[in-house]
Nucleic acid binder design. Structure first.
Lengths: 113, 113
DNA sequence: CGGCATCCACCGGGATACTG
DNA sequence: CAGTATCCCGGTGGATGCCG
């Protein structure tokens, strides 16, 4: 009864809800990937050509991680030559408003000044 | 003139507006730091006690980076013992809506589900 | 109290070569 | 076309110790 306990006792990074979201979208290439897929499904090769700076292995892994987090789906067509299309899930689509705000903030406060 | 040029020619990570914002708030401890400061200014020691898992040096550096990015201000009071208070700038405060959306997304799609 | 200097460990990202 | 398999590198985060 000596000291009044404050509301926030401890606050680790793990419990931070913002961190939890950034853990999902925070990969170096995940924002541009999701940003592109918000316009519609894309093939692996198209993603690669659209983002020439990303190594194939890295693109592959980022896509796999996004799939594991339920953000995108991977659909392979058993054709020759192979075709694989990536598309957002509902969960991924639900990121749109948040990502839009992040985008607008940078336009206002970083790029556009 | 043979091929029709698509709208999106290339899309590096550097040009992605979302990535630009995440570069600012994406440090491991930056979200919880900003999240706390959205409630009001705090002293260095209070931040440290509130987030026990962060090493002092790391906390110090993250604060310095946020200051360099214009997100927070550092005010030192020439007293004994020393006192230093950190507070959000307007630019930092302007992150509130975006961070709120990130927070809500995780509550809905990760934690609470 | 509120740092900074030093050193270290880890892991995400990258280049290259090969495959179903 | 759409990857996987290795190997490597740098940056960020972390532990410890000293200082105004």
């Amino acid at each position: 009864m000596e000291e009044k306990k404050v509301e926030i006792l401890t606050h680790g990074a793990a419990e931070c809800p913002i961190t939890a979201t950034i853990d999902v979208i925070g990969g170096k290439w995940k924002p541009p990937i999701i940003w592109l897929l918000l316009r519609g499904p894309m093939r692996f090769g198209t993603l690669s050509k659209t983002m020439p700076d990303i190594a194939l292995k890295v693109l592959s892994r980022q896509l796999k991680e996004l799939e594991a987090d339920g953000i995108i789906t991977r659909k392979a067509y058993p054709e020759v030559p192979p075709r694989v299309e990536y598309a957002l899930t509902e969960k991924g689509e639900s990121l749109r408003p948040a990502l839009t705000m992040l985008s607008e903030w940078s336009e206002t406060h970083i790029l556009g000044k």
